[in-house]
Amino acid sequence: MHHSHLIAELLKLLASILLLISFAMLSQRRTQRLITLFALQGVILFVSTCIVAYSAGLRELYYSAALTLLLKVIALPWIFNRLIHRLGIRWDSEPLVNIPITMLVGLALVIFAFGLAQPISMMATTITRNTLGIALAVILLAFLMMISRRMAVTQVIGFLAMENGLFFAATSATYGMPMVIELGIALDLLVGVFILGIFFFQIREQFESLDLSNLEALRED
């Protein structure tokens, strides 16, 4: 009893760190740091999944934790680092909405997500149920980051951070998704990042910049 209480508290701590990282990502303008933060999110996910796996005694969750480590902590940050190195990106250009306002909107989103998660976590039986609100908040914050940034790389990181939130939501509400789905998602992410990497080069070749506001010229009048 005491044991499970400790685990629940530990998970809450990890969830709060995840949320903190999300806010950090929202305010971070250096691309290099953003990738580091993304990798850090992956580490948190790895640790929390391992803890859930241990406490619930589910072997699949260990696999999924290993997958997270491999993909989100090692492979993707490595790919991104290479990409920004090749593309020569250091800073995101001026965000569409300035950072203090984005943070305030983010705050409102967190409150909204907690309110939303309350009735759902009442029904859940897992020990991780209290973290559902945080998972939802992470998803919404990542979405907000995609909206408020201009660079293609940042948007892709935002998209991946959203997936992190979904993954966390899945582990906290139902002890993770079935293994097949998880493998499918992992593959999708990897392929998606590859394709987007190709796109980055194409976009830069066309517009000599990765600023997505250039794409507005594609609109048909």
Partner: peptide, 17 residues
Amino acid sequence: QGGRLATYLLYSFLTLI
């Protein structure tokens, strides 16, 4: 259809909310 990716994302976001 303004052609801005951020606006399109905002549409999805607002729909989600």
